[in-house]
Design a protein around this nucleic acid. Structure first.
Length: 635
RNA sequence: GCUGGUGUGGCGCAGUGGUAGCGCAAUUGAUUCGUAAUCAAUAGGCCAGGGGUUCAAAUCCCCUCACCAGCUCCA
């Protein structure tokens, strides 16, 4: 007798061992039809998985993460099967499910064309209609290698060879198609009806740029055509908020051939940048930071001492001044350290929280550049905190809270990663261990959820990264907290402790926005250009109905400017509908219309983003907008 | 950097071998208007750059550059 505990405390008993699918059937035929996978004692399992002991079981449909994965993974196998039917000479690499769909990497002499993509998609639909049942089987490693050699799939052979000697290798086959795969998969191809192949792109075998470049096809799949349609519509909508498009439309910034990767900030964008900086200064002052500024260019000796010359040279721009090598700073830390060294420090001074809005230059590969998100010159809202070892956790906690408060203000969701020691790094294992555990401990003290990103730390220390999403779900690292026990050593930093002895301080490097440029890119997409009033380049636009009311418009404008708002008046001899259309396209949060009726009543007509609001006293409008700006409310 | 795609007035696009077009924006004039586009006229382009094929190239071929998607790398 096997006891299966389902959700809501329901327990079912089975006479003998039973598959996940049979459990679903025992609940309802409807559920069995939609079942994609199961979770058995916390592990995602195939529908074919046999439950042979008392277990907790829940059934996953497409609406569950595990079910979605199985569904899309099956879609990727269907794509591979379609390609094998149409282009049998193609070699298979790997084909997993991903966040919004799936991909599969193929090796063939020429990449797939648009027309071929359509053919493949049609063939996939045919395969779904054929309702081919999907079987799972396992082979010992040697037999598995033999099978894949026989099928002439060298990439699969390589994958299996990387698995342990005694491994049982699982395969899935559907009709004439068999693929190495850990699963799970659906029971048949039937459910995968709504598929769309999105794009073809190159991708290196095993993600290594030294390897051969394969041809990757991205696709997505849904159980219902209407869901697929909804997803495609959502993507279209998201493209409309692309910061590069809006940046041009709203005249925020420009990226020109004359400086590849070096953004120009236009007057409107500069308002946003400066307003963010004002906000930054305000919260950092409150949090006990001082501010410094260090040079953009410093000599080679400094960069050799900091380790950048050795570990970061590929990303640095250099120049020669009076026959001496210099580098344009890619990071602010060495400058901050030199500032620390200007003085003797007592334990009483610590922690020293030293902020710097530093413009850094880094050479990025041309293909990596992306609007404001990835540039070669950017402003870091940097700070270096010098402290004693005992202060580490408290300071990290302060910084995490500060970053969290910034992201909350804008309504951002974010995820956190802990990045550990990379290959090209400096310092002792002990220092790295202490630093990494310091970060991990702080995260755990605060019960923060995080994923570990092995080997992705900075060359001088491990880091906590904060990642924000853009409009189509790509994530970008913004905030980061890096714990550094190496640079204080290299620069021989000291403070005098209670007993008069010299001690080595520990150092944190941290940013909240990350790069102000990238943060603005994210902001543009997040708000679709409709910035909260406090950030809007123009906060109130005054539209006289005709020339006759220009004087009144000027008077209203004076009062609004006097109140400290960023305003503009549209004096053109256009109809009011036209002026409103334009002001709305500019995403101006408040539009004030003045005409005959307003002049007579001594009032103004207000239009906010919510729509027409009718006549109001100007003083009332001023009060309302001032309050919104002061609270930095998100309209 | 790699693979593929794209490159036509300020912006968005059409134009697949026969003298470069549309819409918006701009300028000028008229209109003086009540909540998402008033009318008319004018001006604006070595068709990314270079080389080639051809009687003739935006269009076909080669090279370079930039941008876009993805990979790699990263704030």
């Amino acid at each position: 007798m096997i006891k299966v505990s389902l959700k809501d405390g329901v327990v079912k008993e089975f006479e003998k061992e039973v598959s996940v699918y049979e459990i679903a059937q025992s609940i309802s035929e409807g559920l069995a039809r939609n079942a994609c996978a199961g979770i058995v004692d916390g592990e995602v399992q195939d529908l074919r998985f046999i439950v042979d002991k008392d277990s907790d079981v829940s059934i996953c449909t497409f609406d569950d993460e595990g079910g979605k994965k199985a569904f899309r993974h099956t879609a990727s196998h269907i794509m591979a099967q379609a390609i094998k039917r149409l282009f049998p000479e193609t070699k298979l690499a790997i084909g997993p499910s991903i966040a919004e769909g799936f991909y599969y990497d193929f090796d063939r002499p020429t990449p797939f064309t648009e027309e071929e993509l359509i053919k493949i998609q049609d063939e996939m639909k045919k395969i779904a209609k054929e309702n081919i049942s999907i079987e799972r089987f396992t082979l010992p490693r040697e037999k598995a290698i033999e099978l894949m050699k026989e099928k002439d799939e060298p990439y699969k052979v390589e994958l299996i060879e990387a698995l342990p000697e005694d491994a049982e290798i699982s395969f899935y086959s559907q009709g004439d198609f068999t693929d190495l795969c850990a699963g799970p998969h659906l029971l048949s191809t039937k459910a995968v009806k709504a598929v769309k192949l999105m794009s073809v792109a190159g991708a290196y075998w095993r993600g290594d740029e030294k390897n051969k470049m394969l041809s990757r096809i991205y696709g997505t799949a849904y159980p219902k055509a209407s869901d697929l349609e909804a997803y495609l519509t959502m993507l279209e909508e998201a493209k409309k908020r692309d910061h590069r498009k809006l940046g041009k439309e709203l005249k925020l910034f420009a990226l020109l051939d004359e400086g590849q990767g070096f953004p120009f900030f236009l007057p409107n964008g500069m308002v946003i940048k400066n307003t963010l900086i004002d906000y930054w200064r305000e919260i950092h002052k409150k949090a006990g930071y001082v501010e410094v500024q260090t040079p953009i260019i410093m000599n080679r000796e400094l960069w050799e001492r900091s380790g950048h010359w050795g570990h970061y040279q590929n990303n640095m721009y250099t120049t020669v001044i009076d026959d001496v090598d210099h580098a344009i700073k890619p990071m602010n830390c060495p400058g901050g350290i030199l500032v620390y060294k200007q003085d003797m420090h007592s334990y009483r001074d610590l922690p020293i929280r030293m902020g710097e809005l530093g413009i850094v230059h880094r050479h990025e590969k041309s293909g990596a550049l992306h609007g404001l998100m990835r540039v070669r010159s950017f402003t870091q809202d940097d700070a270096h905190i010098f402290m004693t070892e005992e202060q580490i956790r408290g300071e990290i906690k302060n910084v995490v809270e500060l970053i969290d408060s910034v992201y909350k203000l804008f309504g951002f969701k974010y995820h956190v990663e802990l990045s550990t020691r990379p290959e090209n790094s400096m310092g002792s294992d002990e220092a790295w261990e202490v630093a990494t555990e310091g970060l991990r401990g702080a995260l755990e003290d605060m019960n923060m959820k995080y994923v570990v990103n092995e080997g992705d730390g900075a060359f001088y220390g491990p880091k906590i990264d904060f990642h924000l999403e853009d409009s189509i779900g790509r994530t970008w690292q913004c905030g980061t907290i890096q714990l550094d026990m190496n640079l204080p050593e290299r620069f021989d930093l000291e403070y005098t402790d209670k007993d008069g002895s010299k001690k080595r301080p520990v150092m944190i490097h941290r940013v909240c926005f990350g790069s102000i440029e990238r943060f603005i890119g994210i902001l543009i997409e997040h708000f679709a250009g409709q910035f909260p009033t406090w950030l809007s380049p123009v906060q109130v636009k005054i539209l006289p109905i005709s020339e006759k009311f220009e004087d009144y418009a000027v008077k209203v404008n004076e009062e609004l400017s006097e109140a400290g708002f960023r305003t503009a008046v549209d004096f053109r001899a256009e109809k009011i509908g036209y002026k409103i259309r334009e002001a709305r396209n500019e995403r101006v949060p408040y539009i004030i219309v003045v005409g005959e009726k307003d002049l007579e009543a001594g009032k103004v007509s207000l239009r906010s983003r919510a729509g027409e609001e009718g006549q109001k006293d100007l003083s009332e409008v001023i009060e309302r907008i001032a309050k919104e700006i002061k609270e930095r409310a998100n309209s």
